[in-house]
Simulated scan of single mutants.
Amino acid sequence: MPRLFWLLFIVGGLTVQLQAQSSSVRANADDSLDAPTQAVAGEPLRQALAQRRALYASGQTLRAAVTELQSATGVAVVLDRRIDPGTVIEVSTGFVSVRETIVAISESVPKAAASIGDRYVFVGPPVAARRLRTLTEIKREAVEQVRRSMDAAKYRTLVATRAASWSDLAQPRQLIIDAASDAGLQVDNPDVVPHDLWAAAQLPDLNFADFATLVLNQFDFTFELNSDGIVTIVPVPDQVVVEKQHRVRSREKQDVAKRWRAAFPDLDVSWKGAMATVTARVETHERLEQLIRGDAPVMVQAAGIRDRSFTMTVPDGTPVGTVINSLQGQGIAIRIEGRSGEKLASVLQQTMQLKVDRMPAAEFFKLAFGGLGATVDIRQDEVVLRFSEDGQ
């Protein structure tokens, strides 16, 4: 399967987006880039999160960076109501997965963290982000429990997924009321949700439990549901954890237990033979399963510079130095030989305009920098702009 490498540069008012992939698969990859991007979930979301990209954002708002990311990848990102979308961020990554890019964005925002689930990504206060996936799991299980005592047709309506996106100035209280009504439910106490107005959000289809958890968690609420279809909004409990069992091969139990202790020194594990019972967050359970398998992080090398193609738009009047700094911020090394001091400053202050679409590196760098009077040497690990000797 072709691996796409995405780059997004945001420098003040300059936005430069690059797409790069191995030249051997460029034609096939280019065809896929023309399709409109929609919010993805499940396996498509997992694949989108595994894509590699680089991000350089300087002087750009959190909202703008998140919007660009979602547009490029299809990964739905929801900002908690308590996070200021106008926060100016400074982020620079190398070629990393979209998952790592999202974490880097969240870490650039004061008192924020990311929760990456199977339907969407949430960026909010650390406490709210840390508990979200576990709350979602608990509510899914609660819905499953009422199945035994609920009419079959009513249950199918309850668990069906529906359009979950909302528009600008949406009121969360009304969102909950409408979602419950669509699911055949009634909210007993909607007035506990404070009045608020939210910016638009694009999401994949969600069932009621997932949608209500996403909305209510932002007010430190969750919900209870009975078999009559009555929803009661309640405070989130102090501890949000789930109990799960993990089966380990008997001959590997000692090694697995050692890996678990190294990763989670304070974790309480109850063993019964080769079966371990653990009460923890969903993310902890997932990591425990990885450690059972002995999984280690997989490092994927990005394609060399000469094997990439680029799409780039640079507005007229942009200094050459700005574009070079952007490229260097993404791990594309650019070295200038034969110019220093005032002569180097003169080169960097020259302005340029550029618009190319999926151009191979050999053509792209010569078009971008060849007009400076330099010889452009494109290597796998760097680009060298070579001028004649200083003073000549």
Rank of each mutant, 00 (worst) to 15 (best):
R3W: 05
V11D: 14
V11S: 15
G12T: 06
L14Q: 15
A20F: 11
D31L: 14
P36G: 09
A39N: 12
E43H: 15
R52I: 11
Y56I: 14
S58K: 14
R63W: 03
A64S: 08
A64K: 13
A72P: 01
T73I: 01
A76L: 11
D80F: 01
R81T: 08
S92H: 03
I105A: 00
P110S: 02
R119S: 08
F122M: 01
V123S: 04
V143E: 04
Q145T: 13
M150L: 12
D151T: 09
K154T: 12
D168S: 11
Q171M: 13
Q171G: 09
P172N: 09
P172S: 11
I176N: 02
D182T: 07
A183E: 10
A183G: 04
H195W: 06
L206H: 09
L206R: 11
D210G: 05
F211A: 10
A212C: 00
V215C: 05
N217P: 08
Q218A: 07
D220A: 05
G229D: 02
I233L: 04
P235A: 01
P235Q: 00
V236H: 00
V236Y: 05
D238L: 10
V242G: 04
R247P: 11
A263C: 10
D266P: 15
D268Y: 08
K272E: 11
A276C: 02
V282D: 05
H285E: 01
G294K: 04
P297N: 03
M299D: 15
Q301R: 14
A302L: 04
T311W: 12
T311C: 04
T322S: 05
A333T: 10
G338W: 01
R339E: 08
R339F: 06
G341Y: 07
L344A: 03
S346Q: 15
Q350V: 12
Q350S: 14
L354M: 14
R358Q: 12
A362Y: 13
E363G: 03
G371A: 13
G371N: 12
L372K: 07
D381T: 06
